[in-house]
Design a protein around this nucleic acid. Structure first.
Lengths: 155, 155
DNA sequence: AAGATAATGTTTCCTTGTAAACAAATTTCG
DNA sequence: CGAAATTTGTTTACAAGGAAACATTATCTT
């Protein structure tokens, strides 16, 4: 008789299976791996898409606010924004009211790029959590929004 | 009148607030930032702790299985394990039944290190999700376990 | 048995993300 | 007002993590 563990499901996690941070990390990694497993050539990466999307939804948003909402460090955001600027997708503007900050907007090309990517992105997002039924998925969304202080949609 | 968005909560996300992958990512990043914001000197990083913990709970576990369960890539796992080996915490053994694989166990020092870190780690984990009440937290855990195929505890 | 295929780790190179020090502009407060 | 503290973004130097090619061992096919 050989009872050696052979599948991931059989691995004993003990208390770790009640560790919320751990579960979130595993879930998140799983989603990313699924995302990158998809074909698609020069698809936007999730980080890029979300930055562009949020700028689109909040024209003139401050870079620091983007950092706060997307949980991206300032140092890293600088690189992201510079790269998107070089692709001709975002425009940086130093406002006169506060010349430390940077106001971000999309260029016309940027708008087009987001519009282009949005369909695929949200289509993928809708496949996330297929292990759950519709009501569980909705419930998970509600709990996560609460966890991260995103007010629910007014839908 | 100035209605410019000033706080992260006010940032418009539109459809993104219904994107499960996005919400998971934000939640996960938030937890990590909280973790690293804590003081503590040479605390184990979450990844290190979980690897040690899972080896402790599954002595002799194969490296590849660890990868699967912890969603860590093989290339990266090699580095993690080698580092833990150099610290004298894990022992690698090439089993005769299959000389491709590696069986992992903790050394006595490894056991001590995990035991030492466990209290702090799980204490932190219990603070995760304080934005939710007890029943919401439990519900979130159940949903995440289902999402990642971790069978619930028999508690 | 022998050659093709697959599984498992490792190595190397590259991308993503973080930490710390810095620069510039703004705010706070004696 | 004016010095100290804060906010914001950037730079540099590093750590974490991933992709691809490779080596070794095992399995599959015939």
């Amino acid at each position: 008789m050989d009872v050696r563990v052979r599948s991931a499901e059989q691995v004993e996690l003990d208390q770790l299976q009640s560790a919320l941070g751990f579960l979130l990390r595993i879930a998140q990694l799983k989603v990313f791996q699924q995302y990158f497993m998809q074909p698609g050539e020069d698809r936007l990466k999730p980080g890029e898409f979300s930055v562009l999307w949020v700028i689109k939804c909040n024209p003139g948003i401050r870079q620091s606010l983007l950092c706060q909402r997307l949980m991206i460090k300032r140092a890293h955001m600088t690189k992201l924004i510079r790269a998107l600027e070089e692709r001709g997708w975002v425009a940086r503007r130093i406002p006169d009211e506060d010349r430390r900050g940077v106001e971000l907007t999309l260029t016309a090309e940027g708008e087009a790029a987001v519009a282009d990517a949005a369909e695929g992105f949200f289509a993928f997002e809708n496949t996330v959590g297929s292990e759950l039924n519709a009501s569980e998925r909705e419930q998970l969304m509600v709990l996560l929004r609460k966890l991260v202080n995103i007010k629910g949609s007014g839908l």
